[in-house]
Design a protein around this nucleic acid. Sequence first.
DNA 1: GATGAATGAGCTTTCATTCAT
DNA 2: AATGAATGAAAGCTCATTCAT
Lengths: 206, 206, 206, 206
Amino acid sequence: MGDSKKTKILNAAIKVFAEKGYQYATIAEIAREAGISTGLVYSYFENKLDLLLSLNLRFFQMVNVINQKKLAQIADPVAKLFALFRTYHEILLHDKKSLYWGTIIREGFPQPHLVKSKKLKQKQSKIYEENKQLLKTIDDIVAEGQRRGKIDTTLKPQLLRQIFGGTSQILFNGLFLQYYRQEKIGYDREDIPKAMTALLEKFITR
Amino acid sequence: MGDSKKTKILNAAIKVFAEKGYQYATIAEIAREAGISTGLVYSYFENKLDLLLSLNLRFFQMVNVINQKKLAQIADPVAKLFALFRTYHEILLHDKKSLYWGTIIREGFPQPHLVKSKKLKQKQSKIYEENKQLLKTIDDIVAEGQRRGKIDTTLKPQLLRQIFGGTSQILFNGLFLQYYRQEKIGYDREDIPKAMTALLEKFITR
Amino acid sequence: MGDSKKTKILNAAIKVFAEKGYQYATIAEIAREAGISTGLVYSYFENKLDLLLSLNLRFFQMVNVINQKKLAQIADPVAKLFALFRTYHEILLHDKKSLYWGTIIREGFPQPHLVKSKKLKQKQSKIYEENKQLLKTIDDIVAEGQRRGKIDTTLKPQLLRQIFGGTSQILFNGLFLQYYRQEKIGYDREDIPKAMTALLEKFITR
Amino acid sequence: MGDSKKTKILNAAIKVFAEKGYQYATIAEIAREAGISTGLVYSYFENKLDLLLSLNLRFFQMVNVINQKKLAQIADPVAKLFALFRTYHEILLHDKKSLYWGTIIREGFPQPHLVKSKKLKQKQSKIYEENKQLLKTIDDIVAEGQRRGKIDTTLKPQLLRQIFGGTSQILFNGLFLQYYRQEKIGYDREDIPKAMTALLEKFITR
DNA sequence: GATGAATGAGCTTTCATTCAT
DNA sequence: AATGAATGAAAGCTCATTCAT
C-alpha cells in the first residue's frame, strides 16, 4: 500500500521471477505487476540483473539481521541452532508468497563475468559476504556446540552446516513445487519443522 | 572420440549449460563446443529445451538403471540405502565433468507451459516418471527399513528421503562451486561419502 | 507526413510487398522504408503475415465501403455495374502507387494453416467475408439486371462476375507490369475504362 | 512410372509448389515426393528457382507447340480463336492435377534481379519469349479477324486478348480454389467452356 | 519523477545448397 | 549416379534498455 516505489518493484520482481523464472521474466511484466511504467524500473535499478541481486542481498541481510538479534539473547549453542532454523521457517512460511524466496536464491548467484558495472560488482560482493556471514554464523555455533560437547563431532562444522542447510532448502523447495507446480511431494508445511527438529536432534549429544 | 554426433552434442550441451547456465547458453556455443554447425544441432534436437530435457532424461534413466541392477542383488534395506547413494557418488564423482550434472538437473524442470511440442511434452512426462521412480525407490526402501525396525520411524519416508537427497545434492553443489566457481566451501570430495555415511547412520536403529 | 506509425508501416509494406513480392520482402526492409526500427513493426503487427492480411482487409473494406455509398444512390442495375468498376479504377489508378494493391491482393489468401494465432485467424475470416461481400454485391446486381431484362441471361451471375472481375484484374496487372517491370503490354491506363465499358456493354441487352 | 528422374522431379515440384506455394515448398519435400534424395535434385537443376522457371518454360512451350500444330490446320480466325482456348482447357482440365499449372504460372515471373546465373537468365528470357509468342499468336489472330470483319473492332487486339486471357485465367483459378481450398465459387468445370464461348461470341461480328 | 514508444543487439530457427562417401 | 549429413547465411522475433516528452 504505502510502499515506496522501490519496494513495489522488488515485490513485483519476487513474484514474477519466482513464477516465470529469471530468464523468462520481463521487465514489462514486473512493471505491470508493480503498477508502474517500464521506464521507471530503471530509475531505481540499473538493469534486470540488479533486481535479482537486490532481492538476494535483501534476503540475506534480512536473515542475518534477524539472526544477530535473536542469537544475542541466547547462550546455548543448541538453542541457537534451533533458533536459526526457526528464523528461516518464519521467513519462508510467513505467507504463501514467501516461498518465492527459495526460488530466487537459487537463481541468485550469476556468473561473475555477467556482472559488469562497478556498482553491481559491489552488490554481488555484498551478497557473497552476507552469505559467508550466514555460513560462518552456523559454523561457529556448531563448532562451539562441538567444543562444549553438545553436538556430535564426527563431522566438521562445514559438513554439518551443509546437512542442515541442504535439508532445509530441499524441504522448502518441495513445498514450493507443491504449491505452485501442483506436484505431489508427500508431506506438507507442518512437517518441515518436525523434520528439521528430528534431524538436528540426531546430532545433539545431549 | 568415436562418439556419435548426438552424443557429442549432448556432451557439449552439458558443459555449456553447466558453465553458462541454461539461459545464457546459446546453440551457437554448444555447436562450437561440439565441433559442428548450428544447423546440425537442429537435426538431432528440436530446440534448446529439447537438449535440456534430453540431458535430464538421460541422467534419471542412467541412475534408475544402475540402481535397479544394484538393488536386485541386495536384500537388506540399509545396505540398499547405502548402495543408492554410492551410485549417485559414482556418477557425479566419476570425473570432473560429471559434476556438471548436478547443475543441469536443477535447471531441468521447466515451467510446463514452456514445453510446446507434443514430442517434448512426452519427454517431459518421461522425466517426471523417472524422477518419481527414483523417489519411489528411495521411499520404498526407507519404508521397508522402518517396517523391519532397521530405520528410525520418527519421520515418514518422504521426509527422510528429502533429508538424504537434499543433503546429497547440496554437498555436491558445494563441490561444484569449489571446482568451477572458485568458492571456498570448507570440505572436499572425500568428505562427501563420510558425511553421507554419518547422516545415514544417525537414522539406522541398528 | 502526419501519418500514424501504423499507417507508415502499412504504406511501406504495400510498397515493399509489391516490389519484392511478399516472400522476398523482409521486415527489416519494410522498417527501413517506413523510417523506423524493426522492433517497432512488431508492436503494431504480430508478424509479416499480419501485415499482408491487414493490407488485404483494408483494401476490401475500402472497396466495400465506397461501393455501398455509391450504390445507395443508384437505382439502375446497369448503372450500378458501371459504378462498381469505376470504384475499382478510382482506387487503383488514384496514383502510381495504388497499382501495388493489385499485386498484394493476389498474394493475400495464404494457406489457412499458415495462419496460426487466433487474432490472425479472425483477420483472415474478415477478409473472406469482405471478399464474399464484394462478390455478392456484383452477383446481386447482375442477377437483378438479368431479372429486369437489362443484362444478358446466357450466363449465370457468378460467371459474368468472373468475366468482368477477371478482365478488370488482368488489365490492371498488365499496367502494373508496364510501370514497374518495364514490360510492354500494348495498351495503357486510358484503355482500361474503354475496354471495361466495351466488355460490359456486350452483355447489356438494352 | 517409366518417367525419367528429371520428369519425376518436375512433377513433384508442380504438386508441391501448387500446394504449398513456391516459398513454402522445400526441396526436401519435392525430393521426397519424387522418391529421390535432396542432393539429386541438384544434379538436374541449378536451384529451387530453376525448378520454377523450368516448369513455366515447359508450360508455355507445351501450349505454343500444341497451338502451332492446331492452327496450321485452321484457316478461319474465329475458329482459330476457339481452338486456342480449347487448348488451354485441354491442358488445364486434363486431370485434377493439371489445375496446379495455373498457380505455378502466377508465381513464375520472379524479379529479374533474383535470377543470377547466366543459364537461368537465358531460361527466363526464353519464358518471356514463349509468353510473348503466345500473346502475339492471339493478337495476330484477333487482328486478322478484325481485318476480315469477323471480330469486333471497338478494341485493339491487345485489349481483347487481355479480356479473353484474363477471363480464362480467373475462371480456372476459381476452379482451383474450389478443388484445393474448399472455397465456393458458384460454378464448375463444365461452365468454363460455356462462359468462354459466350464471351468470345460477343465479339464475333458474324 | 514518470511514461511508454522506440531502438537494435542478439538469439533461435529454417532450409537451400554442398560434398564426402 | 545417388545419398543425406552437414553447412551457414539469412530472416524472424524478443525484450532489455533508452530517451523525448
